[in-house]
Design a protein around this nucleic acid. Structure first.
Length: 421
DNA sequence: TCTGGGGTCCTAGGACCC
DNA sequence: TCTGGGGTCCTAGGACCC
């Protein structure tokens, strides 16, 4: 059996831990630049506020006092997530972290009678130790566990834990699950399925296998089997990430290559730092730009360029330099840029880097690596960047992200101490 | 005026091989 | 007039997830 542990309204719950006054109120958490809604409390969901709603469309509610608004504080959420995950890891033999607010528990070797008490204990423990409410769904496949967790979250009677462990419960649950709520059925597929007469998860499982295969190929078939109780989405093997991306929208549109360079250098340095944190190195560096896609009155341009390194690198100097070269090949004057980003790809373990035979200077490389390591030691964990490359923007890059309703650094004030010093 | 960020996997189609 | 068959590899783009 698999159990899916899902934190309820996670970002909102994190804010409530430190501001209990938000309990029982309609609350939303906004994306960077206070752009759009990325998390909602039950009360704000009940008001009809949808995920992804641009903030300006609902700011009136906040002004009238009907809605509490928080800017996102990812440092806080990351820290709270780590606490929840460590409780899970300390309780069951194997967990798979699926996202910042979800994890699968692999329940092999735990007797069926113990599963529900164990999960109920976890719900209580996480609530007590971190303040975060969670729901747990238990089922023979991950896709069914997801559905079970929806029930656990939706109906109070479950007290946070719902298990699908026989065919009757499975069919009942599927018949009550709209097709668009199924894991793997998204915004494009759902309308097509409804057109074909498939409205619930149960309808889907009752279609013949050949019909699924013909219309929805491998992906659809996997979902079909998982919903029928056959495991297709196996336990993940420990694999490092294949790409790392840092991108941001700007509060103001930028027009000069110089302004963009400072941003891109920052994004690239951040990617490099993430590579070093996980002990990997990248062979490819891609820089991309976006004009403002909502401004139909302006010329649009969405270029990207990739630079391939001869030898995989993780030091900031080489990654930043590659990102800036890529930027230079795509930058065109005359456009107003709203967003930029850097992706590093073709990632290999740092201890398995193949040195290129040509044009590779091992002394320069080890010097660059040493400098990056020292920067890491001074900068520590988190977002602070006391030591930067000269090409990075002076000052913290987060400083010009709009964040008018941000909570404090309740659990991660170490950064602040360093910056104050 | 105002619209996020970070990932994965699959497929189709082109380029290339013999 | 008329133009094969069978493979592999890579990439771009789309769909999905949170």
């Amino acid at each position: 059996m698999y159990a899916l542990v899902d934190c309820n309204n996670f970002f909102v719950s994190c804010e409530r831990v430190f501001r209990p006054g938000l309990e029982g109120k309609a609350v939303v958490v906004l994306s960077n630049n206070d752009g759009c809604v990325v998390a909602r409390s039950n009360e704000s969901k009940a008001m009809g506020i949808k995920m992804g709603t641009p903030y300006y469309q609902i700011s009136r509610l906040a002004e009238r006092g009907c809605l509490e608004v928080c800017s996102s504080n990812y440092t806080l959420y990351g820290d709270m997530s780590a606490r929840v995950m460590s409780i899970l890891a300390g309780t069951v033999p194997k967990i798979e972290i699926y996202s910042i607010d979800e994890a699968f528990l692999l329940l092999d070797g735990i007797s069926e009678r113990q599963v529900v008490p164990l999960c109920s204990g976890l719900v209580a423990k996480i609530r007590k130790w971190t303040g975060i409410p969670v729901s747990i769904g238990i089922a023979p496949t991950k896709t069914l566990a997801k559905i079970a967790s929806h029930f656990a979250k939706k109906y109070r009677g479950y007290h946070g834990v719902c298990m699908i462990d026989n065919d009757e419960k499975r069919r009942k649950a599927l018949s009550l699950t709209p097709i668009d709520e199924v894991w793997g059925v998204g915004r494009k597929l759902a309308p097509k399925l409804r057109e074909a007469g498939v409205f619930t998860a149960l309808d889907y499982t009752e279609r013949p296998e050949s019909w699924i295969r013909d219309n929805y190929m491998l992906h659809g078939l996997r979902t079909w089997m998982e919903l029928r109780g056959t495991v297709c989405v196996e336990a993940e093997t420990e694999a490092s990430r294949k790409s790392i991306c840092t991108s941001r929208s700007f509060a103001e549109m930028l027009e000069s290559e110089e302004d963009l360079s400072m941003k891109v250098a920052d994004f690239a340095a951040r990617c490099a730092r993430k590579l070093r944190e996980e002990g990997t190195a990248a062979l490819e560096v891609t820089t991309f730009l976006y004009t403002n896609r909502f401004r139909t009155d302006l010329e649009q341009y969405f270029p990207s360029a990739t630079v391939r390194l001869q030898t995989a690198a993780s030091n900031s100097q080489e990654i930043v330099s590659a990102a800036l070269r890529a930027l230079h090949t795509i930058f065109r004057p005359g456009y107003r840029y709203k967003k930029a980003g850097v992706t590093v790809g073709n990632i290999v373990p740092a201890d398995a880097v193949q040195a290129s035979l040509f044009g590779f200077d091992p002394d320069l490389r080890s010097r660059n690596d040493r400098i990056s390591r020292i920067m890491d030691q001074v900068n520590g964990k988190g977002d602070s960047s006391l030591l930067r490359l000269a090409s990075q923007k002076p000052g913290h890059y987060a400083s010009d992200i709009r964040r008018e309703h941000c909570s404090g650094r309740y659990s991660t004030c170490f950064d602040e101490l360093i910056e104050v010093r």
